[in-house]
Nucleic acid binder design. Sequence first.
DNA 1: TCATGTGAAAGTTTTCACAGCA
DNA 2: TGCTGTGAAAACTTTCACATGA
Lengths: 242, 242
Amino acid sequence: MRALTALSERSVPTVSSEELAAAAGVNSAKLRKDFSYLGSYGTRGVGYDVEYLVYQISRELGLTQDWPVVIVGIGNLGAALANYGGFSARGFRVAALIDADPAMAGKPVAGMPVQHTDDLEKIISENGVSIGVIATPAGAAQQVSERLIAAGVTSILNFAPTVLSVPEGVDVRKVDLSIELQILAFHEQRKAGEEAAAAAAGGSSSVGGAAAAAAVVPPAGRTAAEQRKGGPEGDVPAVMPA
Amino acid sequence: MRALTALSERSVPTVSSEELAAAAGVNSAKLRKDFSYLGSYGTRGVGYDVEYLVYQISRELGLTQDWPVVIVGIGNLGAALANYGGFSARGFRVAALIDADPAMAGKPVAGMPVQHTDDLEKIISENGVSIGVIATPAGAAQQVSERLIAAGVTSILNFAPTVLSVPEGVDVRKVDLSIELQILAFHEQRKAGEEAAAAAAGGSSSVGGAAAAAAVVPPAGRTAAEQRKGGPEGDVPAVMPA
DNA sequence: TCATGTGAAAGTTTTCACAGCA
DNA sequence: TGCTGTGAAAACTTTCACATGA
């Protein structure tokens, strides 16, 4: 979708699966197969109409409608989220900012007055909000989630470092900022291990009890699109069988 | 690892693959197979020693060492990251906060004086930093990444809404806050579609050209551990073959 | 006796390669 | 001719089920 949007902005009329795959850093056959599940939106011998494809995928991903969201907990992170331009650019409208601190009430953040938690239920129902963002301290998160859900929210993006317990039918996504760092650290460690291994090539290595430094992820040429989610390989650090 | 840490905090001495799998919401056979790649750390008939397993996995994930990181761009998000307790709790030490605004220099954020970009190279080398966090505006990110890399950083966590172009050997993870919302919105849309489908059960549905609402992700019972990454199924919205 | 560790089976995803159509 | 759409093959992941050992 990112690659497509970029093409659309450059007013490129059509694109082949090969070109789009290169831009997105995926295999062209996979891209075609994936698109085929949505329907036959391409033209043989020509490629895909960029605008049409953008529309079809947007629709499929639910980006054609406008989603009102509330952000609860307007600390540093909440304020950062409120100011984050990417939301409005992608079909999300920040309907309200909510905080439990009475001193925050009325204060403008990102050009919008912060409202008090007391009005949470009213705000949710009046705006037809179904997606809530929790950026409160860990201690408040569970309670906030319960109030959000009782008021009608069915999807929650949780930045608080707690696992929320929610009824079935409610989706929770947890963003753990430190996990991203952990994944980088994992690969950093591997790099160090590889260097050491290369330096001591052939030497008598003292392996403790496991395949600690022995299992090495193949470096492989990195394409721009692997930045989709980052690290050398996938999302989860892979430990290869021996 | 989360499940294990919880057991460790409750001073549970040993755990079977079955128990741990239930707590983590995964299949016990998979858990055993995964562990087997790290080594044979269990005892047949007994299970796994919690502390020992925590240690082994920590080591494998690179959590036993302390990683100094710098945060560049001390706006709302940068400040939020600096204040985020989760980092220090997981083996990361914020070595420095760096901002390009001279007015920020010296200001304390999270009990630490903000330093000016001019000193970036010096800070990196003196602290032996290999992981950098970019929380600058999009326009500054590429340049900042280049300076970080030139100074010796080999892993970057990028919060700026830009794709960074980096030399081979440097890892970049991009955190796109709006993508999380998009995934929630995708599932929201599905929920709405399922309701509509249930309401009009048996009726003559007008399918446009594709399997729009036709492809439905099975709701399935949700376990706590699915919150690892959120949505009903995996990371990426799945469209099922017909 | 109980739970690990692991071959083998089942299931899923990705890639190949080419028929078919504009 | 050129590129899509897709069966079939290959690669990979997950689960089963049981021999093995504490």
